[in-house]
Design a binder for these strands. Structure first.
Lengths: 223, 223
DNA sequence: GCGCGGAGTAAAGTATACAATCTTCGGCCA
DNA sequence: TGGCCGAAGATTGTATACTTTACTCCGCGC
């Protein structure tokens, strides 16, 4: 049992990895941005070695692309890839939900509700916090499925698209709709209505894809 | 169009990565084996730096596990994880096949047939070559789906289980059955009978899981 | 004017050296 | 006898320095 709250001092590579993830997921490093090892290293006060190792993890995960002697680049998606990503999430999330819903405890539901309500209380401009709450809300279900590989894949799929999803939070109307969808999902979970939860997730996702696609097509030309 | 047969000199890390993959997939490094960076480095005539970077890729892919200051270990699976792995393959391969079969050209079919026949002509003792042909046969379908992420995930899922599947090739009877199943899959592909191809893959997989599970449960105790 | 080629610069790739951490084993004490 | 403490060895983690590769830009020749 590891104590919660206690944090073993990280290795440099772990700290760097966490930092790079933050930069990418927050949208600070847009897709297509080359990652200069030297710049990252000196910004974080470490040498290039741990930076390179962190980047290798991200390469293995598909979050960045790598070309020998050219370097690492924040992964870009075209419209086809985005559609593929969401199709895979459709398949895999349905599987996760089927396993998770029957196992949901009151504790799980309390966590979902908490994340949901915290998200609603946030200011629309606090993008990182919004993204965190959103992630936490959906994570409860994924965790409850107790399928580690599935969970891992879904995290990768989510992260790959999150790079672009940041764009959506700018709009308050969208935010309100997201909140409504979360409440519906929570209600269906409380009822243990598995198929309803799946259906709501499908809608939730479809809406996101449709909002994203036009913006994505617009940026393809600049690549 | 890159010329086939031409190979640009690899970076050390790429060469090391390929070599470690070979060692793991061939079964030479059994699951649970600790990977000593120094040993790998001196065996391949490089320093530890490229070895560590290759290992980071495998960590990101989930092929090895890592603990700070302890090192890297070839990933072990318990029975539950194996079942999960194959369940995910069931979902994702079905998706791949649905996209691939309508797109199959004569050229694809010729490649499948070639891989199939080469595999049948091999000696039962030549495990690496058998595994290669098997991989090639199934890759044709995955490639034809033209879904890069899906292809990547399925490669990871396959690699994760291949560590154990090596055990199966020892048996000639199993080999003959595999050949028969490949022929059936090829026939269904030629007929463009999508649902039949999916059904055959499901059988192919189920048989493998059932052969693997008892052996896996047997080895868990030794961990 | 256009294109080819080479020097110079910037960035990545790797080796070596050193620091931090873990593990093992032997000795001491209860 | 058993277990705890600590030092030595082994292994990993990181910094620095050097090598290799790629990109840029200038000048020469066509």
């Amino acid at each position: 049992m590891s104590q919660q709250g206690f944090e073993r001092p990280l290795t440099a590579q772990e700290a760097v990895l966490a930092e790079i993830r933050r930069e990418i997921l927050s949208g600070a490093w847009a897709p297509g941005t080359p990652i200069r090892q030297d710049a990252v290293a000196s910004a974080l006060g470490v040498s290039r070695v741990p930076v390179r190792e962190a980047l290798k993890i991200l390469e293995g995960e598909g979050q960045v692309t790598y070309a020998p002697h050219k370097g690492y680049v924040v992964r870009e998606l075209d419209a086809d890839e985005l559609v593929e990503l969401y199709r895979l999430r459709e398949l895999l999330e349905a599987e996760a939900i089927r396993h998770a819903v029957p196992k949901l405890t009151d504790r799980h539901l309390a966590e979902m509700k908490d994340a949901m309500e915290r998200m609603e209380s946030l200011d629309a401009s606090d993008l990182p916090a919004l993204a965190d709450c959103n992630r936490e809300f959906h994570s409860v279900l994924l965790d409850a499925a107790e399928m580690p590989r599935l969970r891992h894949f879904l995290r990768l799929l989510r992260d790959a698209a999150d790079v672009y999803r940041v764009l959506l939070y700018s709009d308050t109307g969208t935010l309100a709709q997201t909140a409504a969808e979360h409440r519906a999902i929570f209600a269906a979970c409380s009822d243990r209505d598995t198929e309803k939860v799946i259906e709501l997730h499908d809608q939730h996702r479809s809406r996101t894809v449709e909002l994203l696609l036009p913006r994505l097509r617009g940026t393809v030309a600049t690549a």
